[in-house]
Design a protein around this nucleic acid. Structure first.
Lengths: 351, 351
DNA sequence: GTGAAAGCGCTAACAT
DNA sequence: ATGTTAGCGCTTTCAC
């Protein structure tokens, strides 16, 4: 049923097969199928029928070779950790898909060397465009791409040493300002930021500092280790809150489980004793316990935007330049029940 | 620095360029670079130098065309929701990567029709192997792949109507049995399973039922809506616990935030009043609140196994058959503080 | 409107 | 050991 000639060769049907079946030349079949050039109605019909009945599926490698474009976009991730990356990927993928582009996804997982290897491989694959998340120093791994005029853009942020690529990212500046303004309005004067070293935070910290200075708020920042236990964090937290007398706490989504766990041990009421703001969100931060106020992104939308930019760029031809930084997405301040008026005296002062 | 001839053509360097520069024929250059056939040391050196200095990157489309293999694996996801999919993807991708395969990732996001479209596209891309997560009825979308002898495997489970593909999945049978045995040991006799309709649960429910029957435990199962609010769930939960007098509750990771939120409103002590077991886990279920006992998978390992199977199959040639079901991963029972001895009388009986 | 022919970049027979 | 030749499947001039 699936195959009319049961012992057909283990070989894909080619355009040649279709043409033969339709009684025309391959070139005619090509035209009929691509529809780009006019063909007699009868011929077109026969060709389509033949293709249909043979189960013809055009070979993209051949087409790519001829057309010098693969209709493929590549992406290199550093690591697939944050669940936000799935949303991003979904957005990017679906937008690309709409214009017929497929996505090659790779994960570096290692150092800069791995990044370079993957970039090389994607270059061999002749992707039409390449995204690199938080790119490190890439050296001459980009050479092939550059020679071919393939656009390469950095995603989210630049990694150490890799700041020579146009960047597509979401800006949180305004959202951070809004959050701080609101907290100030609620009487908060001293803020604390807890983050892991050398990740996204650096930029966030800049924004936080800037906004805090602008509004006359005190901001302390402390680094917490990636692996510190909940009990350890509890002590750290107690100490940090004691020393800074902060009434509002900022932290990263990735640290939220441990931090919230530690917070429980401290017997603080949220938000009466302490207001909480998290960078990023998910059902966990919203549905469980006090809904956490957050500075979030629509990462799916950001993905779509990144894809769209690339596609437009591709349509413009190789000579169009990419702007060096595109703040494509916009961070959003979402107020929720985890923030409230600052306590008159902090818990620690009370003691 | 990057380019010795500043106004070089916007064109990738080809093997021909390398050969010319090295003063040899393209075929010789090909041999020297592939290293598959012996070449004089001097020539090899010159060719490599030329390739190096020109920044040569072999065109995979051309190679694919010639070799009839793309060194590309395709994967179709239904949706990119569960964070576990990232782990899976990472495992699959890294294993594939080790053997030089790249990964084309697509997301159906829609109904069976979208699946078919993506399968078609991946077929045109001539992937060497294809994974489809929870495939629905695919109809003749698989024809091209079949004709070409491309292996296609289903992942996780079969979707409605799509049960004609070899399946790679993880079995939880034994883990479920262990969990129930342990609960029985702790005095539990009545269990409750809360799940969303038409997702993974169906299989899980089978396993649960089977194990429960085998151990003489009572098992009730209730469906909860995908969108029910926490307060609504609270009522549902109260009702369900009241009616079944269950002392242990099973639920899915995806429902955990809402369910745990609802549980809080019920003023139950975990595990004194109720024991909890979740299918799947993350830092959220471990670090926050009472660590949840779980039936989990190492999805990254499963991904690696799936990739490995495919690669081996590819090495065997197109005539090797895939076994129809491979339970490649093993679910694991992990006991944590969320389970404890069954209460002498259930909370509701006490009232 | 259709067929003939060339060629995208590469590899593998075959010849030398 | 190296060069010559053919061809993977497709699109696109170029004739007719």
């Amino acid at each position: 049923m699936v195959d009319s000639t049961p012992d057909a060769p283990r070989r894909a049907v080619t355009l040649r097969d279709v043409a033969r079946r339709a009684g025309v030349d391959v070139s005619t079949a090509s035209r009929a199928l691509s529809g780009r050039r006019r063909v007699t109605a009868g011929v077109a019909g026969r060709v389509h029928d033949a293709a249909e009945s043979l189960g013809f599926s055009p070979n993209y490698a051949a087409r790519s070779l001829r057309l010098s474009r693969t209709m493929t976009l590549g992406i290199v991730f550093g690591q697939l950790t944050s669940p936000g990356l799935l949303e991003f990927l979904e957005g990017l993928g679906s937008r690309a898909d709409e214009d017929g582009y497929s996505l090659m996804v790779t994960v570096a997982r290692g150092g800069a060397e791995r990044y370079r290897t993957l970039v090389q491989r994607l270059c061999e694959r002749r992707v039409d465009g390449l995204f690199i998340a938080a790119p490190p120093e890439l050296g001459d791994a980009l050479r092939g791409l550059q020679q071919a005029g393939t656009p390469v853009v950095a995603l989210f942020r630049h990694g150490p040493g890799g700041d020579d690529l146009p960047l597509v990212t979401a800006s949180e500046e305004e959202a951070v300002r809004q959050a701080l303004r609101r907290l100030r309005e609620l009487g908060h004067r001293r803020l604390l930021y807890l983050g892991i070293p050398a990740a996204i935070p650096s930029v966030r910290l800049e924004w936080l500092k800037e906004a805090a200075v602008g509004l006359g708020l005190a901001l302390d920042a402390r680094v917490i280790g990636h692996e510190e236990s909940v009990t350890r964090l509890e002590a750290r937290l107690r100490e940090a809150l004691g020393e800074t007398a902060a009434t509002a706490l900022f932290f990263e989504y990735s640290e939220a489980p441990r931090l919230l766990g530690a917070l429980r041990g401290l017997d603080l009421r949220i938000p009466q004793d302490l207001s909480l703001v998290v960078f990023g969100e998910s059902t966990w931060t919203i549905e469980l316990g006090p809904p956490l106020a957050s500075i979030r992104h629509d990462l799916q939308a950001l993905g779509r935007i990144a894809a769209q930019m690339m596609i437009e760029r591709l349509a413009c031809g190789p000579d169009a330049e990419l702007p060096s930084v595109v703040e494509a997405g916009v961070g959003e301040w979402v107020e929720r029940a985890s923030i409230g008026p600052a306590p008159a005296t902090t818990r620690h002062e009370r003691r």
